[in-house]
Computed example of a mutant assay.
Amino acid sequence: MNTNDLRDFGGATEGRNDGRSRFHGYKRSATIRRCEVAILERARRSATRYKGGMLDQWLTELLARSGMSQAELARRLTAELNRSIDRAAVNKMTKRKRNIDGDEVLAIERIFGDQAPRSESLPARPVDAAPPQHISGRDLVGGADLPVYAAARGGDGHIIVTFDPVEFVKRPAPLAHVKEGYGLLVTGDSMVPAYRPGDTALVNPRLPAERGEDVILYHNPPDGEAEATVKHLVAFNDREWTLQQYNPPETFTLSRIEWPICHRVVGKYNRR
């Protein structure tokens, strides 16, 4: 497999819905002794904290108790999510013929004022993901010119990023031609096991926001210092981001007005 093939796996090519993967692994001592990259399949779009096998029953019971018709729920979901959802889609949700996405679950909770059944914990990786594929790092890294920025813990699980490089590291293939690319030292444990404190998230700020990808949201323009949060993007619309963290498992929303800047994470280097 050549570098161009691997670039597609890193998420730098738009329009692929299958085989989207993340780069993992890059352990260093005084100099780089070994670099491994693990490619993970994309997780399903639906939020993993919800018990998918019970959502259809939960929705059916909500409709029965409230007396709301499927057509009315479809209309209200369309208004909530700013995208078209018809009665047939709602009917399929109740019969487990269609997945209920994370933002749809949150909208249904708001409409009925009832909480969806939750899973007690999240798996270390998506249960339907393929095992990581390990590839030699020699084919993936360029010059040691990728800036890495540090972050300190802020309030409400957020971080404060300082845009003064603490080091420069080898540049992976997904960022080979991305001048604005950078690394961010992860602090906090809200995204364990995907990202552990000391890992370096690899970021391509050029890529657009996309469901099912890890992102860094900024509260203010990333210049000097900026408040940020690293999360998994479940869904988004014109008004808000639907985000997921793993530790403790939680799915929640943030206003796009308050958090207007979204940078895509295309992989990570493991902590030293």
Rank of each mutant, 00 (worst) to 15 (best):
V141W: 11
H177D: 14
L122H: 06
F9K: 14
E227L: 13
A201T: 04
D223N: 11
V169H: 03
D114M: 11
S136P: 12
P123R: 01
A88H: 10
P222S: 04
E213L: 08
K97H: 13
K51M: 12
V203L: 03
D101N: 09
Q245E: 07
L207S: 05
R272A: 08
M191Y: 02
A12F: 10
S136Y: 06
V203N: 04
G11Q: 00
V161E: 00
A173P: 03
Y182L: 04
A47G: 10
H158C: 14
R34K: 10
R96G: 15
W259L: 05
N17W: 05
G19W: 00
P132E: 05
G11C: 01
G142Y: 07
S119R: 13
S84N: 10
G15D: 15
K231L: 05
A209I: 02
T251V: 15
N91S: 15
T94K: 02
R196P: 05
L217P: 03
V148I: 12
L55P: 02
N247G: 10
A74L: 03
T78L: 00
G113V: 07
A228V: 00
E180F: 04
N270M: 07
T31A: 09
A71T: 12
L254V: 02
R49A: 05
L185S: 09
E61F: 11
P126S: 13
N82M: 13
L184T: 03
A176S: 14
R272P: 15
E210S: 15
D8I: 11
E213K: 13
P126L: 05
I216L: 01
R125M: 15
A38F: 10
I257E: 13
P208C: 09
L55K: 03
R153T: 13
G157N: 04
G102A: 06
D156K: 07
S121I: 10
L233P: 01
T31R: 08
Y182V: 05
G53K: 10
G67R: 00
T242V: 12
S69F: 01
Q115S: 13
H263T: 02
V37Y: 07
W58D: 04
P174G: 05
R49M: 15
C35E: 12
D164Y: 08
L40C: 09
Q244D: 11
A116P: 02
Q133M: 15
V148R: 08
V230I: 13
Q245Y: 02
L106I: 09
K179T: 14
T48Y: 09
N270L: 10
E14C: 09
P132H: 02
H177I: 06
D103N: 06
P248H: 03
I39F: 15
G198H: 07
L254I: 01
V265R: 05
V186R: 00
A12N: 12
E36I: 09
G113F: 09
K97E: 15
H24N: 12
W241L: 03
I159E: 09
R45V: 10
N237A: 01
L106H: 01
G155I: 07
M68R: 07
P165N: 03
H24R: 12
R211Q: 12
S119T: 08
P123T: 03
I100T: 05
P249I: 03
R16G: 11
L77Q: 04
F9H: 14
R20K: 07
P123H: 04
A88I: 08
G113W: 08
N99H: 08
A173N: 05
Q133R: 15
P208D: 09
V215G: 01
